[in-house]
Nucleic acid binder design. Sequence first.
DNA 1: CAGTGGTCTAGACCACGGA
DNA 2: CCGTGGTCTAGACCACTGT
Lengths: 224, 224
Amino acid sequence: MIKSKVNLNKKSYVPYRDQIYEKLKAKILSNVLAPGTIVTENELAQMFGTSRTPIREAIRHLQSEGLIEVIPKKGMLISRMNPDEVAKINELREIIHCHAIAKGILNVTQADLNRIEKILNKAEDLLKGKDNAAKLAPLSIQFHQCILKMAGNDLFLAVDQYIGTQIKRYMVDLFSFEEGASTSWRHHREVAEAIKQQDARLACQKMQEHIRWGTSFIREHISI
Amino acid sequence: MIKSKVNLNKKSYVPYRDQIYEKLKAKILSNVLAPGTIVTENELAQMFGTSRTPIREAIRHLQSEGLIEVIPKKGMLISRMNPDEVAKINELREIIHCHAIAKGILNVTQADLNRIEKILNKAEDLLKGKDNAAKLAPLSIQFHQCILKMAGNDLFLAVDQYIGTQIKRYMVDLFSFEEGASTSWRHHREVAEAIKQQDARLACQKMQEHIRWGTSFIREHISI
DNA sequence: CAGTGGTCTAGACCACGGA
DNA sequence: CCGTGGTCTAGACCACTGT
């Protein structure tokens, strides 16, 4: 049961459906709406103080990204993600990343390398502190985006973003393990180093190891 | 301007939005709604004899698949696809297919091979006749689905279906060239043969050639 | 057989584009 | 400034669910 009301921005001309989508997504990714919870259209309409129409559109959007499941006559169920799903998603992410590296490594510009370096430095700085999981997650996403951009095919980015929405739910958890955070960023550093050396084979291998490690780490340490 | 009314099935409990989505998609894929056309919500509401709500949901669905573009205050524009888009999509399809073959070839069952054989036979039969492009297209889709299923990761199928919706628009055109149809199915046959021989390297190579050939064929022969 | 949830209708409202 | 298109509201309707 949800009681807290959420206010939407009536002035900005962002449609309600989008605002609702963003707010719900944030709640799901931050586990405020825990997996297994069932929410109905009526509840949400009350919660946001709108009619059900924009709610429905937001729900469909979330559904298409796999964050929720619509159970007829019951409501929307916050997906209880399982490590098998992660494994499937990461299998696809792995081959896309490797292809992006293999194809793009020769065209990498100095600007690209600088951007990656900046991300790595920032992350390694955050690693020294405590409880920076929430800040590390977006950096990791940026890192992976940089890699995918190398392929020069924006579809890669789009697909990764699409299938990767669910991955984000786990990322904060992963980074809140000290071992998880440090290992992950060591991998990132290794991949970047190999790219800098123009060693596509090594970079692919390291990226593969990284993603597979992520899959197993989640399987072993995290269960929702 | 569209005048013809389209009837929806009021009895079946498929929601209007889904029926509308399917009918619109069919019209777009078969070029009844030609690229460049602009259609408004009101027009569609009249056309289907419903209110605008289910129309809107169908539109969003089509939009998410890239079949249309929504231009604010103008309406939905039937996407004018260009060969560059096809190239990007096929680049991704290529690596997914190759991975599926490499991963799945050892686990292929006799049932899989039989299904593929059936598809090939049916297609080769249709090739003898004339004007069978519309029947060949779905067979080709089925063939590719069989390949992707080999990977045992349903995400591959989902992604291919998602990004491949636009490809279908070209497929009928491609198959209406006699050369296009015969070459395409010769490729399919070669891939199947290599899979039967458990030769992953060859199967990948043939699949790669096939998809790349498709990209160039469209670039050279088809322009919308 | 009432309650609940999902779908659709009719229409209001408002920003924007084009006379 | 009017017409048009996009968004949202309120509520009707109907198929299920679970007493």
